[in-house]
Design a protein around this nucleic acid. Sequence first.
DNA 1: TTCAATTCTTGACGAAGTTAATTAGTGGTA
DNA 2: TACCACTAATTAACTTCGTCAAGAATTGAA
Lengths: 385, 385
Amino acid sequence: MPPRLAVATRAETAVFTMVLVQGPVSRVEIARRSGLSSAAVTKAARPFIEAGYLEELAATERTGPGAGRPASPLAIRPDREFFTGVKITDDELIGVVTDLRARPVASAHRRLATTSAEGVVEALAELVGELLATDPAYRERCHSLGLAVSGDVDKAHGMVRYSPFLGWHQVPLARLAAEATGLSVTVENDVKSLTVAEQWFGDGVGASSFALVTVGIGIGCGLVVNDRVVAGAHGVAGEIGHIPVGGDEPVCHCGGSGCVEAIAGTAPLVAAVRAVTGDASMDIDAAIDAAHAGDQAVREVFDRAGHAIGLAMAAMANLFGPERIIVTGDVGGLAAYDLFEEHLNRSFAAQAFGAAADCRLLLRPRTFEQWARGAAAVAIQTLFT
Amino acid sequence: MPPRLAVATRAETAVFTMVLVQGPVSRVEIARRSGLSSAAVTKAARPFIEAGYLEELAATERTGPGAGRPASPLAIRPDREFFTGVKITDDELIGVVTDLRARPVASAHRRLATTSAEGVVEALAELVGELLATDPAYRERCHSLGLAVSGDVDKAHGMVRYSPFLGWHQVPLARLAAEATGLSVTVENDVKSLTVAEQWFGDGVGASSFALVTVGIGIGCGLVVNDRVVAGAHGVAGEIGHIPVGGDEPVCHCGGSGCVEAIAGTAPLVAAVRAVTGDASMDIDAAIDAAHAGDQAVREVFDRAGHAIGLAMAAMANLFGPERIIVTGDVGGLAAYDLFEEHLNRSFAAQAFGAAADCRLLLRPRTFEQWARGAAAVAIQTLFT
DNA sequence: TTCAATTCTTGACGAAGTTAATTAGTGGTA
DNA sequence: TACCACTAATTAACTTCGTCAAGAATTGAA
């Protein structure tokens, strides 16, 4: 096994990431798209081929109408290196091992008995050990661990500044996890991680600006503008859930009023359904079932939620003008999406200003594992930029 | 007069823009801030000094506690080159000549008899001629003209794609204006131009992300994220005026409902004042006077407007977490700002999520001339990046 | 006056990428 | 079949940009 490799020069970054993200591409095509000379592409690609990260495919497609030497496209060798990603919630760790393309090849869960930093790191080390034990290749060729945490994360210093769900303040998570696992660790906010996964390996590929909206317990949003994830000067960004689209009516836990999340978040949604049905035992699944069964009053609750989300997305699109918006939901939100869809689309279209309405809406169910995959994607992106 | 100069290398851009934007700086300081070696700074600065764009100041400040060779800071020579900027409205051209630091040194207006592209360009040429005739130095050392137009502008191609106020579609304004004036012309959206002026020469200096909110006939917004102005994939961005903060109530001319602009824009504001006073002859100035005179019903109209603007600004801050927000108003809006201020600040603080509320709000009155200055700033930025 | 401290300059060097020429591999055609 | 036109990839010489390390400049303090 030749030694590991990381990108060094600008050309290397451009060539490697282009092959990684845009699939097999010939050298000339890379040169065209990146603006580099084809000589530079040849030089930059060589070390990656020698180290086993890239390979030449046999020429497949016809070059053109006439003739010419056929291209031998460069392709990634996905199993050259593996990455571990873990999403940390307040009661569970969800972990995956992925290949270079961030495709999961192994996964495991672990319930948390405690949310103390020490306890979580200990469980994390066990989970990572278990994951890497799945296959000798993982242990041999996995050197990076990505962690996704909700809340305010300082990625550069690997610190969790503040995580309400975990009750953490200023936890040096990257250092702790590195000591416990022996891997190089990156820590990032969970929504941003998912956004990075879309940017490089999902539906954000090719867009220099897009937004990812997550519908679930809360309503979140990751933004990519000018090819970069928006971080927020004070650690806050993407809080689409607290756009006030409801007027003065529902007061939100954030202290504001009319927040989308206070209308379309899981808790307020369930509360509203309980109110209209008079059934205080209902949970989100029961609410969804009732709506699917045709209960008109319950449907109207979901309609209002879809309306609120659509308005917030329009507000966001009016501000940034993203090329695309990817809408994802976790377990509850996903099952309910068909209930939101109609009013969401309609309200978005009505409120989007002019050409902002041209922005494509993509519905993409994402499982919990995808959040862990996002963490791995951050580790990959960190290594190759 | 030595020949004109433009930046070529990365180091030249870094050095020149740092001196231009951050005021007099010593070479070591530039090296520290930019990450370049001090040798590179010396080399990059030389051609600018020789061409008369930069000069060495006598060492002024003490270097440190001990001793050492005193620094000779580099400073811009603002009158080495001049720039013309013109804001084009539907009934008037407002033009300025500025120095390298975008400070106006001459200004002139010209009313428009027509909004046809030919007519406007003709008037523009006359206005530019008049401005440059003010001083022989302007004609000799002004080679760039910046134009600011409201609407959808394709800066790269110098095209006005669509400007509702002017009724223009696909007007190749840069080419027309270049032919008519003999200057190199840049065309940019008016709000973005003002944003660029703040970014390099105003209250945005030093912030890698900030927002500029313009309160006036409409409510507009320019965004800078990661040191770059947000353009919008479909030409739409910064439409803060069409964030729906008012619930379903006021229908907006855009087709949406609850838009800030439908509450706090000049026209709806005047309409609301007329409704509460029963005086159909009132204009915006009369409304402001009535509020200042203590008319409670009128004050409440302004309160509601301030509330709406504050909510929209909070929504924007929640989404991208700017370091600062600069609030500006034109003639009407400026005079009315004290009427908005209290409710604007209060609603912003209430709705801003967590640390997003840490974002500084700066109130900055801006005259119409400042819009023209923005156009010049775009010309400057284009030349030196 | 000598030294320490700091800024700035200089010239050799090195890294990264370009240009231009060359080699490689294909289809069409005389 | 030999050759040609065409496109892809490689190679080698060269350019450019910036760094490094040494030294010159200029001050305050011992």
